[in-house]
Design a binder for these strands. Structure first.
Lengths: 234, 234
DNA sequence: TCCTCACTGCGTATCTCATACGCTAAATAG
DNA sequence: CTATTTAGCGTATGAGATACGCAGTGAGGA
């Protein structure tokens, strides 16, 4: 991942590069829109080598998945320099979603550890940079950005997968409200029954749009909190 | 999931109940602390039936996983009736984490769709109930709770998995800051370099505690935003 | 110049899994 | 009493990850 491998002196030149493997794996997942389509055999076929040759570059399939998770995020666009922190973070959050939405399988990746790949760290840096004008202590910046990442990560996991589900079978979502109404006992779940009565789930037709609106609503609430925090501290 | 099956008249009595299957699967995952340990064969063995017998009760392993994801969340404790919305939601979020932490594999589950199982809905209702005294329109309550769920979901995905990784190999985390410092170019990632300089990542020793603090910090920011919103609307 | 050995690619084999198919036996409706 | 529905299961298949060891390569050292 960090290309730390000291150049080996002896032996045949590798005909295969790690980057090619990872790229091939990503292409397969993209084409099939399915992480399960990525098998070692298929990746090997795509790069034109045997299955076992891959294991000279990757310890296991899990390691390949980790590499994919970093490589799938391209480098972030630099944020415009002249915007305030709030605009910056809003743009940032949108950019993350845009980047991840190019790879629907992203949400299905098992999580590995703290943000560690070069691309992940670049995004981390980008978000921190948006806060550089605030004069907050570094620790507070990290806390704010971690919270934001947590929220975005949740959206990736829930929203992205829901969108995939919706694309597969929109009817289930259209009937969501009606189905719930049939199943729910208003005495046991009164608050939810009230929501259903108010018809909040009746219009789930334009799903993507709704999802984006919900995301933005929550995001702005969070940023309101951040604004109040900055006010309080300074 | 909803026990909608109309009682069948003919045929031998089932010796096996869906609940037992799901419970067995959860126990296996708990004992091995590993979702991958759940194989159809192993579940079958545990309930004392053959592998294929399970398929009379679940259509596929994926369906079993969905059932596990609902069953693993027990019913929420009812929130104390006399607390304000903010305390209620704080308790709620902590309770979700506590419930999920009993099953570390939870974060690894593939996501299936909108909250649909009975237990999931009960949690949904519980959070909505915390907002019932605010007089907000139902739609706003849903938006607020969805945002909160998104944040909590993100914490489950990131925090829970990190905690598992930390338990496996604390040293990697202890060296996190030092490792980053070695790998990062301050000219390319200046904001991150500044954070490292400030030593924010130097003391990751007490990981669980840190993680909880970060979660709470972000949560309170979000709730500050909600408070401002309620103020603005009423 | 030639030998050595670290290193790459790969063929084969093994082991684990999910699951399709079809048979048998149970129990109830008519 | 018989037809029909349904539960459990044995067998088989096919996919997939990966351990193991062989064979060829080519730079460093003699």
């Amino acid at each position: 991942m960090w290309r730390l491998r000291e150049t080996p002196r002896r032996g045949p030149k590798p005909t295969l590069a790690l980057d090619d493997i990872v790229r091939a794996a990503i292409e397969i997942a993209d084409e099939d829109k399915d992480l399960a389509a990525v098998s070692m055999a298929r990746v090997a076929e795509r790069v034109g080598n045997s299955t076992m040759a891959l294991y000279r570059h990757v310890k296991s399939k899990d390691e390949l998945l980790v590499l994919m998770s970093d490589a799938a995020l391209e480098r972030p666009e630099p944020l415009p320099a002249d915007v305030d922190w709030r605009t910056g973070l809003t743009i940032w959050a949108g950019a993350v979603l845009t980047a991840v939405r190019k790879h629907r399988w992203y949400a299905k990746l098992p999580i590995s550890g703290p943000p560690a790949g070069p691309n992940n760290l670049a995004w981390f840096d980008s978000a921190l940079g948006a806060l550089s004008g605030t004069g907050l202590p570094e620790e507070a910046k990290v806390g704010i950005v971690m919270g934001l990442m947590t929220y975005v990560q949740g959206e990736i996991r829930m929203g992205l997968d829901l969108a995939a589900g919706f694309a597969d079978n929109p009817d289930i979502f259209r009937q969501y409200g009606a189905t719930l109404a049939r199943v729910i006992d208003p005495r046991q779940l009164p608050a939810l029954a009230r929501v259903l009565d108010a018809g909040v789930f009746d219009d789930v037709g334009n799903f993507e749009q709704n999802s984006d609106q919900d995301f933005d609503f929550g995001l702005q609430l969070y940023l309101d909190g951040v604004a109040a925090f900055i006010e309080r501290v300074s």
